[in-house]
């Protein structure tokens, strides 16, 4: 396994009432070449902020306070994305690492055709003429299975359905053949049958283009279907990480277990009360002392409130941040 991206001790803070609070706190993880890593968690857990930091797109007043993100795509010794000059970073963004977002309508410019927008991305990063850029745009639209790509390249975003727009977003992200694709809830805003189409497309592209993917989602069903490895985040921290089968069959962290049990089954016997995690996700300025899950945890013991537990390796590629292990 070859490491493509290695994030070390990432800390991203946001000011609330004059004080800095960490949205991402001491996060370390890596992405291997050719693998799909899922980042799972609920709203506010820091999964999107993590992705944005890798591209240095965290919006002010948020800031990357600490950490490294070593990218090994260009050289064996790697470069730290968080320390690159803005100019160098622009060569990485969209070109080496591309991102797709949840809401395809707001990420496309309504006054340009989808062709213009894809060609812009291509010409920004690669020295090609207009005609060649157009050919490549058509090619990449075909790759994301947009029927009649030669004609649809002249469509404006509003002329397309939500599923088609998400395909265009994926096409744009793929247009420069990036090493890494970051997909932030790529199917969440879509209807169920369209969601299935987009997931299928992403899975096919992973195989076809040997892509390395960071998939951000709140849906453990999607993770099970698409990912090789999973990282579970809670309140800015990694609480568990494991290969996908291991995580679903031997989840260790009480939060992961809770998330899995809270999903109603599709066919198994019903009628029982659903398992639910009590309380709500804490906000940044009111994190509990010690383990951040301690106020909601069914297995809480005295030591949980005194300090944040360390991540512990429990074998088979699995790590857990819980005092009980």
């Amino acid at each position: 396994m070859q490491k493509l991206l290695d994030i070390q001790n990432l800390r991203v803070t946001f000011p609330i009432g004059g004080k800095e609070y960490p949205a991402v706190d001491g996060l370390s993880f890596h992405l291997n070449r050719g693998e799909t890593l899922g980042i799972v968690g609920e709203s506010g857990c820091g999964k999107t902020v993590t992705a944005l930091s890798l591209l240095r797109l965290v919006e002010s007043p948020g800031k990357i306070a600490e950490g490294k993100a070593i990218y090994y795509g260009d050289s064996p010794e790697g470069v730290d994305l968080l320390a690159l000059s803005e100019e160098k970073m622009r060569e990485v963004r969209g070109n080496k690492i591309a991102m797709i977002f949840q809401e395809p309508m707001t990420s496309l410019n309504p006054v340009f055709t989808v062709g213009d927008q894809i060609m812009e991305a291509i010409q920004l990063h690669q020295k090609v003429g207009k005609a060649e850029a157009q050919n490549r745009a058509i090619e990449v639209l075909k790759k994301v299975r947009i029927p009649d790509a030669e004609r649809r390249i002249n469509d404006y975003p509003h002329q397309m359905s939500g599923g088609m727009r998400q395909r265009v977003m994926i096409a744009m992200a793929l247009s420069c053949q990036p090493d890494i694709l970051i997909a932030d809830e790529p199917s969440t805003a879509l209807d169920v049958t369209i969601q299935a189409q987009i997931l299928e497309l992403i899975q096919d592209l992973i195989v076809e283009m040997k892509m390395s993917v960071l998939l951000i989602t709140h849906d453990l069903g999607v993770v099970a279907q698409v990912c090789d490895r999973v990282m579970v985040m809670y309140a800015g921290m990694k609480v568990e990480e494991a290969p996908v089968r291991r995580l679903f069959h031997m989840p260790k962290h009480p939060y992961t277990i809770g998330l899995l049990q809270a999903i109603p089954p599709l066919f198994d016997e019903k009628g029982k009360e659903l398992y639910s995690i009590k309380g709500t996700v804490p906000d940044l300025s009111h994190l509990p002392e010690g383990c951040r899950f301690s106020d909601r945890c069914p297995r809480v013991v005295e030591g949980c409130h005194s300090k944040v537990p360390l991540l512990k390796y429990v074998g088979e590629g699995q790590e857990v941040r819980c005092i009980n292990y």
Binding site: S161, T193, Q197, L199, G221, V223, R245, I263
Partner: peptide, 25 residues
């Protein structure tokens, strides 16, 4: 059937035939 098949099931071992509808409504 298509709706049922489109529900992502949280079980990585589950192999099922997917019924993927083409096109949009």
């Amino acid at each position: 059937h298509a709706l049922l098949s489109a529900v992502p099931i949280p079980d990585p071992n589950l192999k099922r035939e997917k019924i993927i509808l083409s096109g949009d409504p």
